[in-house]
Nucleic acid binder design. Sequence first.
DNA 1: GTGTTTGCAAAGTGTTTGCAATTTA
DNA 2: TAAATTGCAAACACTTTGCAAACAC
Lengths: 135, 135
Amino acid sequence: MSQTDHVRETLKSAGLRPTRQRLALGGLLFNGHDRHFTAEQLHDEARRGGFKVSVATVYNTLHQFTGAGLLREVVVDGSKTHFDTNTSNHHHFLFADGSLMDIPAGQMQVLGLPEPPEGSAVVRVDILVRLGRAA
Amino acid sequence: MSQTDHVRETLKSAGLRPTRQRLALGGLLFNGHDRHFTAEQLHDEARRGGFKVSVATVYNTLHQFTGAGLLREVVVDGSKTHFDTNTSNHHHFLFADGSLMDIPAGQMQVLGLPEPPEGSAVVRVDILVRLGRAA
DNA sequence: GTGTTTGCAAAGTGTTTGCAATTTA
DNA sequence: TAAATTGCAAACACTTTGCAAACAC
């Protein structure tokens, strides 16, 4: 199965029409490698690769992908929104330069988490490990 | 010691001049209760209390307070910046309505955190427990 | 064909900045 | 009086929206 077919298949199973733009952006994202990126980075990458996409479409597409469970948003600071192609349960290292690295949740465990207040339930636990230069 | 004197003292020990604006905003914040708020909320609160401060000054002041270690920023989503008067080591519950509640770090422990990559060191670990309505 | 998607530019948020006027020490 | 701080409005960065044209099925 070609890479294009794989993306086409991914979109179809997510209920998204395989438009030219979605195929192009999906081709950059769903290639087997986990990656972290912002809308701007993906837009730049697409244009450098010769694909003409508007910023608005990149944003729309990323939100559609996220809504379809193909991407996850990662909140690391107030400015840009970061997306992650790894949608499984995991956490992150945040490097001093702003880049991210996944930490598989499997090897981690949080002890002592208090019960959430009456009427609420835990939806997700996000752990962000902020890193600096070694001492 | 009056509340005003307490704020004045707090500012002085942080190396910040006790200007009218800082005293007013500090008075709203450093009253013994831990609170979470955004710049806009604090600005509204100040004006409702009859104090005229510009948005720019609220932002400047919050950043000065943060730089002086009197406040902490809490990242919960890409939109607004949240500030926290609790500067000790702790984590957060994020309710469905966007409000926050502190979780003392003392009772918590994270197991299985991998070593940070060569050349970097852990600066801080932030845990955000996202809550929804109970099932 | 018919409903969906795109692109553009304009509007919207939240936040920062430049600079003259004001205030503090 | 000298240096720090404020307020305003304009500038900013990122993101969303409205709507006609283009496209997928």
